[in-house]
Design a protein around this nucleic acid. Structure first.
Lengths: 221, 221, 221, 221
DNA sequence: CATGAATGAGTGTTCATTCAT
DNA sequence: AATGAATGAACACTCATTCAT
């Protein structure tokens, strides 16, 4: 009954917060990290400062996060989870839509995820040390969910289409363009135009004349 | 170095190397950074170690780089420059090629830049604190050079095409897919397939029926 | 630390000690600085050594002093405070004394403050970078307290005497002569003689025939 | 005949500059030190920066100064020399003056020396590490020259007066008050008043009833 | 003699982490 | 559970000094 520290899987996990207060503490900590990152860049994030901004003691930070990276990993996971959730919802909502509708939905979901808080997403992606498998984890999750979305519209796409290849292509495009549309559009490109063109590119690709004539890449030097 | 604080005396700018010896030193330093990053990750980069690996004294490091970040910035610039150069060369080489040829060339150039040294590019892109304008700088440069490449094949594309929009779309796609192709292909997607499909997507988009029928995005919830 | 440069994140202010332990730490640190200064000169003072001599970790030093200078500033303040206290005590103790008694008392207080630990005072005054207002702060404090002492014996001094002028003159004399008496007497001048003569000079000045005949400065070239 | 480095006394002396160019270099270096000290404080003085500001190479600095301290020592010596010269001149000029005239002259000489460039003198005195014998050297020189000045007016002072004691007292007073008058007068004390009062104090002391009645110091607690 | 590239011991400072209270 | 004082390895960076050119 003496409640000692209980490691769950063994994998650097501390006691899950059971109490209401505990959840609040955890959230305060993660919010503090985000606040600092947004205001001063990731370089300004250090555990003591996080504790201060969160209004808790440094000891409490270590009560819930075994080390500094754990906070970033938690944040990263949250972000992945959110995108996952957004796209899953889109898949459901677009059950009756055309392929275009689905792609639009997915694209918008991504833009939302990024645009809601550009500075934050930017940081999550470009500054957080998502070492070692962070990046892959995101890519894998995205690939999976995009594959799911495409599978739902398989009827509208050419027979021979390899879903994995398509998900790879569309996943990368949607991520890059949503990111780009939300955060670094060149002058004169509105977000609506970016969206329309992005979707056109993806749909065009997916509807493409399947096993069309070979590409004429080889005619160059 | 948490808060904003003021330094004491003098120069924030280090001399540009004038003598032959000096150039060698600078190169040795940058190479050392790359070596460490590739072997042990960016976390293992510290100025003293850089000096050691470069075979110069720590003083020499600071003779040419005002601070640690400066080394990364220099590397970042180098990388941008290299991609710029590669694509410019492609533009020239594909002067007589079709649109497909050009896009293939650009894509391959990007893959080359990334694949030659995946760990390194990955780090340059995802780990280096390219605060504040680093990322934009790359995006801007890429946009510019892609625009140039497309302009060279304007004849093969629909009349109404807005070059800036097209460059934005193609630039993002080529970067994301080349990156993805070089570094995180899902099982079963070969690099050749990735290339072919990527090019197909871009060319399809560019040749697309221009101002074709409106997309049916709005048929969803 | 040559040029003006900006620091990154957070706090420039260290917490005031709250627990008992903390006060002890702060004292140990300041004492360590004094010990090192006295034994090896100010040049031997470096933060790591201070921590070592104080028997605390370097981290603890920075817990209470934002930077190296802060330790010296604290010491400087302590010294000013002590002289202030000593002279205030003298004023009280000499409440019934004559003007001579008061001046003697003040002089002795100054000598005490300096002689108790000549090397240390010397360092506090001549070596500590009491930039920017350190020096003035001392002069101002001394002026104030000397003025107080003189005011207590106003009856023994000529009517027209301007207390500020007198405090300025006496303050400078007492400081210089006490300092000199304690630390750089020429051969053949005992501390008693130095004291007697110093006091004679000050009392003579203060009792001086007030608005006596003009000084004959102007009879020179 | 191979002109090797020739140490003169053995005491850290490098070849004295013989050529015109060399003198200019030395002066440029010392001026650079002063400029830096005045503009940014002594903390900003470092040999490389001195070379830069002086417009010479760091190698040239070491051609004429064996180490960093040597520059400060040279400056210190210059300052002492100047005061010496000024007071010697005063002694001559006041050959026919009264004691008051002489004291006035000495005081003015000191004020001049300090007031000409207050920031500089202040720094020379309070910031330069006049370790180990710097301070004494100044005190000794000042004592000597003041003694000389007083000796010239011995006739106007009481018989029993010990010249060494008098020079000690007057030397300290004149230095402190001239310094104070030039650099930290309290509000409401003009430099003229400071001068008049300072001189009154010194002359009063010197003319004082010599071995007058004992001071009543001992009537205090 | 002058130059300035190179050196490297030394120092100030940070910050993740522990643990007594 | 929470607190926050304490720790100390690690690091960024400085600057007096040397020496090849």
């Amino acid at each position: 009954m003496g409640s000692k520290k209980i490691k769950k899987g063994g994998r650097n996990v501390r006691r899950e917060p059971r109490q209401w207060r505990a959840r609040q503490t955890v959230e305060a900590i993660l919010e503090a990290v985000v606040r600092i990152v947004k205001r001063e860049g990731i370089g300004a994030v250090n555990t003591n400062r996080v504790a201060e901004v969160a209004g808790v003691s440094i000891g409490s930070v270590y009560q819930y996060f075994p080390d500094k990276r754990a906070m970033f990993i938690a944040l990263h996971r949250q972000h992945i989870e959110e995108i996952d959730r957004l796209i899953h919802r889109t898949i459901v909502e677009c059950g009756q839509s055309s392929l275009e509708g689905m792609i639009c939905g997915v694209f918008d979901a991504m833009v939302d995820a990024h645009a809601k808080d550009p500075a934050y997403s930017s940081v999550i992606f470009s500054e957080i040390p998502h070492r070692p498998h962070g990046t892959e984890e995101f890519a894998v999750r995205l690939h999976g969910v995009i594959r799911l979305a495409l599978a739902a519209k398989k009827g509208e796409m050419p027979r021979g289409l390899d879903l994995d290849v398509a998900a790879f292509v569309v996943g990368n495009i949607v991520d890059a363009l949503a990111h780009g549309a939300a955060m670094r559009r060149p002058r004169g490109v509105t977000i609506e135009v970016a969206r329309e063109e992005s979707v056109r590119a993806m749909v065009g690709y997916l509807r493409g004349r399947g096993r069309g004539r070979r590409l004429a890449c080889e005619d160059r030097a």
